[in-house]
Amino acid sequence: MDDLEFRRTVFADPKHLDDEIKQAAQADIGKKRFIDDMQNLENNIEQCMKVDVPEDLASRIILRQSLEEHKREQKSKMTWYMATAASVAFAIGIGFSQLSTSPEFTNINQLAMQHVYDDAMYHASLDLDVPLNEVNAKLAGYGAEFTDSIGHIYSANYCQMQAIRALHLVVDGQQGQVNIFVMPKADLKLDWQHIADGKMQSKASRLEVVDVIYVAPKQENIQQVQSHIENKLKWRT
């Protein structure tokens, strides 16, 4: 192998040298130095090319896909097939957009509770057994994540909460299903007080990075659910 050929081969792929090249380098100190130089440069090129990737790019990609799917959904007739793709978001979106125009809701818990009532038929048969990493991928957009399992998760979908996009989780409680809405900090002119009716209760937590609303059966110890969830909720920095 002549010198030019040697250089061309090393230059073309300095990190994957074949035996012929290695032998040539062993026999010639100049060639060995050349390889060292090139591998040094290669390390610098590698480092330079590893530019920072925008934070949360992955979750923004996933969010965008679920929004697009949602839009497509509105154009076509809703079927079960599509419903899963756009997730529960569509059904919930419709529910909330109707609710949000009605002025009688003064308490955000009331709004969430009504939504759970409207949605009850749908969730009764829905069990997607969502893995934690899937939930965390969706939570990333809100700057939050669960550090540990929060138990069985029936579904985890984006929904529209007045002007805010919430992540709606359905999980197991002691007395039945508990609905959790995670949303960006809202500046809504609404009450946040704990409410209850004959069947259900709803309570909100205003946390550092997000607001969380819990809607649970009336017998449920909602404070226990709250601390169970919030102990595992961490902020992404």
Binding site: M49, K50, V51, V53, P54, L57, A58, I61, I62, Q65, E134, A137
Partner: peptide, 14 residues
Amino acid sequence: YEALVSAYHKDLYR
């Protein structure tokens, strides 16, 4: 899809 995004978004972005 989510696995694909998480495995390749960095290489693709770069």
